[in-house]
């Protein structure tokens, strides 16, 4: 073998060798079994990676997000629609303990999460995983409970930014429906308030405050079941 055979063999395997060098290398391989064997080992290694190594395909939500990201008009449209829903339903107006910015932003955040597919940062049905995850990242620590026995399964949590502050989002599943619970610090003036729900265009929103935190529950689940869920949540949240 010559000293530059290594480079030539790699280039040969990679189809990067010029015609004259290919002929020269092939005739030498025919005469030199050790060169031939070196080529075969190289070819096998290359083939193993090509045929056996994992090829990671982009998850569907990234594909969708890449389209959405390039269509500010579409995204703005979605936000405008959500804002219109929030506004038209009077979500904002005259709600005891409510905060209009927070409520409409929570709904917008819910839509945004669904559009981009970024629903969950920490996927776990274990409240003992989700709660410390929030504690490590937020200046407050919401109570996290799994309500699977009642049919509301804890799916995980994510962080979002609503009303100018970081919030915890607990994500629950009920059949095909997702329930987002946005939890942020309540303004100092807010005491314990009762929830008031509203329904509009498929989104139901419930809100209440308890133990210094405010909760906005956003889902396309029906009102009755969502009210059951909020009842469970209020008990676990100390309201």
């Amino acid at each position: 073998m010559k000293s530059d055979d290594g480079r030539a063999l790699h280039a040969y395997v990679d189809g990067e060798l010029d015609a004259a060098s290919i002929l020269e290398l092939e005739s030498r391989m025919a005469a030199d079994p050790s060169l031939r064997a070196a080529y075969e080992r190289l070819r096998d290694t290359s083939a193993a990676v090509r045929t056996q190594a994992e090829y990671f395909r982009a998850p569907a939500h990234l594909r969708a997000a890449s389209r959405v990201a390039k269509r500010p008009a579409l995204l703005a449209g979605a936000f405008a629609a959500v804002a219109a829903i929030a506004f038209a339903t009077g979500l904002i107006v005259g709600r005891p303990g409510g905060d209009e910015g927070f409520a409409s932003e929570a709904v917008a955040a819910h839509v945004r999460a669904n559009l981009s597919g970024r629903l969950i940062d920490v996927a776990s049905s274990d409240q003992h995983t989700v709660k410390p995850w929030f504690s490590a990242r937020l200046p407050f620590s919401p109570a996290v409970a799994d309500f699977s026995p009642a049919g509301f399964e804890l799916a995980g949590g994510r962080l979002d930014f609503v009303g100018g502050e970081p919030v915890a989002v607990m994500v629950y599943k009920r059949r095909q429906h997702l329930i987002d619970v946005y939890v942020g610090r309540a303004p100092a003036s807010a005491g314990v308030t009762t929830e008031r729900g509203l329904t509009k265009d498929g989104f139901n929103v419930e809100q209440f405050s308890a133990a210094g935190l405010r909760y906005y529950v956003v889902s396309d689940l029906n009102r009755n079941e969502l009210a059951d869920f909020v009842g469970l949540l209020r008990k676990s949240g100390g309201a």
Partner: peptide, 14 residues
Amino acid sequence: DSLPGPEAALARTL
């Protein structure tokens, strides 16, 4: 540009 030596032959079933 060293090449894998004979000792580095891949296991038959990878």
